[in-house]
């Protein structure tokens, strides 16, 4: 609406423009700027209210006890509503993951960058294609052509380090933030 000109404001009646008009413009601009700051400040609480609440954040960290997991077994824990795959890898799996030629990989990453301790692979179990949960956690599951995980939705194959090897997924399975509290327990998040 500011596109149209107005009889008001500038004041067709008064002869004294100049300095008065400048001061008036400044007042209008300053008031408009203050109003803009006010509107922006009011918007923030509404936007921020859609961020995770305090009780949600309180559960955003989980401690996982690793001691019951045997070599070659996997468990799935829930973290932030998502499955986290924790696999205690066998020596063969570690060796297979380490021996891959990085040039062959779609999303190159050495095995050492995928784990903190070679035995323990901790990943977010969500296919990077369209968000399905890949198979391969249970011993009876299909593990794909590379002995890791296989996504049944559109046929993505992940290797024993959770790297994408074949199929439509563009990236390796994501790694959550985690830290070893002791040798047999980790905190995810």
């Amino acid at each position: 609406m500011s596109d149209t000109t107005h009889p008001a404001g500038g004041g067709g009646q008064g002869g004294h423009e100049g300095e008065g008009a400048t001061r008036r413009d400044f007042l209008y601009l300053a008031t408009g700027a203050v109003a803009a700051v006010g509107v922006a400040s009011v918007a923030w609480p509404f936007i921020d209210s859609m961020n995770p609440a305090a009780d949600t954040l309180a559960l955003a960290q989980i401690d996982v006890d690793l001691s019951p997991i045997q070599v070659g077994q996997s468990i799935t824990v829930t973290w932030r509503g998502k499955p986290v795959f924790i696999r205690r890898r066998t020596e063969e799996e570690i060796a297979a993951a380490a021996s891959v030629n990085l040039a062959e990989l779609r999303d190159p990453a050495p095995d050492s960058a995928r784990v903190q301790q070679p035995q323990w692979l901790v990943m977010v179990g969500i296919c990077t294609h369209l968000g399905c949960v890949p198979l391969g956690q249970k011993s009876t599951d299909p593990k794909g052509d590379y002995g890791g995980w296989f996504c049944p939705c559109h046929g993505s194959h992940y290797d024993t380090a959770g790297r994408i090897r074949r199929g439509p997924a563009p990236l390796n399975l994501a790694l959550p933030e985690y830290a070893f509290l002791t040798d047999t327990s980790i905190r995810v998040g």
Binding site: A8, G9, G11, Q13, G14, R24, L27, Y28, A30, T31, V34
Partner: peptide, 13 residues
């Protein structure tokens, strides 16, 4: 500030 603006705008009304 709005009051000042209002007085200015209405000054010639």
């Amino acid at each position: 500030m709005m009051y000042a603006v209002k007085r200015k705008v209405w000054a010639d009304a």
